[in-house]
Amino acid sequence: MKEQLMRAMQRNQLVDIIYVAKDRSITKRRIKIIAIAGNTLQAYCFVRHAKREFKIDNILAITPVIHRERVVI
């Protein structure tokens, strides 16, 4: 899991995560990872429109966001 997060950070790629919050609710977040330190990561959360800190152990799933460009000819 941590390796996928590191790769996403190095590629400057957005990811969708399924996350268990402090109140034990499950949320889906779209984030851009800023830094990873120990067992936490700092990221910009597009749902909350703010920088947030996430515990890596609370991340259940990671999916890279893929933007497909359309070409008009």
Score class of each variant (00 low, 15 high):
Met1Phe: 06
Lys2Trp: 14
Lys2Thr: 08
Glu3Ala: 09
Glu3Val: 05
Gln4Tyr: 01
Gln4Met: 08
Gln4His: 05
Leu5Asp: 00
Met6Val: 02
Arg7Gln: 11
Ala8Cys: 04
Ala8Gln: 00
Met9Thr: 01
Gln10Val: 09
Arg11Gly: 06
Arg11Phe: 03
Asn12Arg: 06
Asn12Lys: 08
Asn12Cys: 12
Leu14Pro: 02
Leu14Phe: 07
Leu14Ala: 07
Leu14Val: 09
Val15Ile: 08
Val15Gln: 00
Val15Asn: 00
Val15Leu: 00
Asp16Pro: 07
Ile17Tyr: 02
Tyr19Asn: 07
Tyr19Met: 09
Val20His: 07
Val20Trp: 06
Val20Ala: 10
Ala21Cys: 07
Lys22Gln: 11
Lys22Ser: 12
Asp23Met: 06
Asp23Thr: 14
Arg24Pro: 13
Ile26Gly: 11
Arg29Ile: 03
Ile31Lys: 01
Lys32Gly: 03
Ile34His: 05
Ile34Ala: 11
Ala35His: 11
Ala35Gln: 11
Ile36Cys: 04
Ala37Trp: 08
Ala37Thr: 14
Ala37His: 12
Gly38His: 03
Gly38Ala: 05
Thr40Gln: 14
Thr40Ser: 12
Thr40Glu: 13
Leu41Pro: 01
Gln42Cys: 08
Tyr44Asp: 04
Cys45Asn: 08
Phe46Met: 07
Val47Gly: 13
Arg48Thr: 12
Arg48Val: 09
Ala50Thr: 05
Lys51Leu: 13
Arg52Lys: 11
Phe54Thr: 00
Phe54Val: 01
Ile56Tyr: 03
Asn58Arg: 09
Ile59Leu: 08
Ile59Trp: 00
Leu60Gln: 13
Leu60Cys: 13
Ala61Leu: 04
Ala61Asp: 04
Ala61Tyr: 01
Ala61Gly: 03
Ala61Glu: 10
Ile62Ala: 05
Ile62Phe: 02
Thr63Ala: 06
Pro64Ser: 04
Pro64His: 04
His67Ile: 14
His67Glu: 15
Arg68Asp: 13
Arg68Ile: 07
Glu69Ile: 11
Arg70His: 11
Arg70Lys: 09
Val71Leu: 15
Val71Ser: 12
Val72Met: 15
Val72His: 15
